[in-house]
């Protein structure tokens, strides 16, 4: 903890030292709103819940989270500060975790700022606030998982554009792995066990389960272990670059 905290603090403050944070939050809120109201026809549904709002989250994160994660390591490598941070007496894992937590907390703030839409449904009807809370937690977990994937990919390159594009593709594969787009490809020939395994990696499947109102421990564990996996990979990538 004594190692993670300074790294977290510096990273988190860095978002607000530049216009990046404000631009990101505005775009985040704007697209969230646009999708909910114009694509999801929030009012036309006439139902007092936020399922339409949350349904788009994995798809919006697909682009918004890599936009944050792409600079996590690529920027350090490009500006030479990588040499500084890796020669300070801080273990690599602490830097990896600190960076991820800071970026994740930042998306958490952006997500929390969507609260007016909850106030709106709460005023217009009587939604199940338990489900909404569970959905917010689920959405936050999805964001953290994308962030871990993006951070790991950012560590492999000094080029932010490459980091962004590859992260979007990898996150996309995780997002759609439960949909017919991917499953039909495997159904024809692969054993059922493999198809099930692939489908179980789908962010959408786990997220939908949570937004249905069941905060199942298994779904939470899925997202947390996925983050742990990619952060471990992140540490390995940084270590490999030392001797590579």
């Amino acid at each position: 903890m004594k190692y993670i905290w300074p790294v977290f603090k510096r990273e988190f403050a860095a978002y607000f030292a530049t216009p990046l944070a404000y631009v990101f939050i505005v775009i985040f809120l704007f697209t969230m709103g646009a999708f909910t109201f114009y694509v999801g026809h929030f009012y036309d549904n006439g139902i007092a819940d936020l399922s339409v709002f949350f349904a788009y989250h994995p798809w919006l994160y697909l682009f918004l989270v890599p936009a944050i994660s792409m600079r996590l390591w690529a920027e350090e490598r490009r500006s030479g500060t990588m040499e500084l941070i890796l020669t300070l007496p801080v273990p690599v894992w602490a830097t990896v975790v600190g960076k991820h937590l800071a970026a994740w907390a930042f998306t958490g703030i952006a997500l929390a700022l969507t609260f007016p839409i909850w106030l709106t449904v709460d005023y217009l009807g009587s939604p199940d606030n338990g489900v909404i809370l569970a959905s917010y937690i689920g959405s936050f977990l999805v964001a953290g998982s994308y962030m871990a994937i993006g951070a790991c990919i950012s560590a492999t390159t000094g080029n932010q554009v490459i980091a962004f594009v590859v992260s979007v593709v990898v996150c996309f594969l995780f997002t759609v792995s439960g949909t017919p787009l991917v499953l039909d490809f495997f159904h024809a020939w692969a054993p059922v066990a493999l198809t099930d395994a692939i489908s179980s990696f789908s962010f959408v499947t786990h997220f939908t389960a949570i937004t249905a109102g069941v905060l199942d421990l298994r779904d939470v564990v899925f997202f947390l272990s996925l983050m742990a996996l990619f952060l471990t990979a992140n540490v390995v990538v940084v270590d490999m670059k030392k001797s590579g």
């Binding site: 603090k9 510096r10 500006s79 030479g80 500084l84």
Partner: peptide
């Protein structure tokens, strides 16, 4: 104590913030 080539530092921080960060990291 290490001064890397080109003296890299976090450009968006002020010198005071940067040195405070280094002090904190150094414990």
């Amino acid at each position: 104590g290490y001064l890397p080539e080109g003296a890299p530092a976090y450009g968006d921080m002020t010198a005071r913030q940067f040195l405070a960060f280094i002090a904190e990291v150094r414990g």
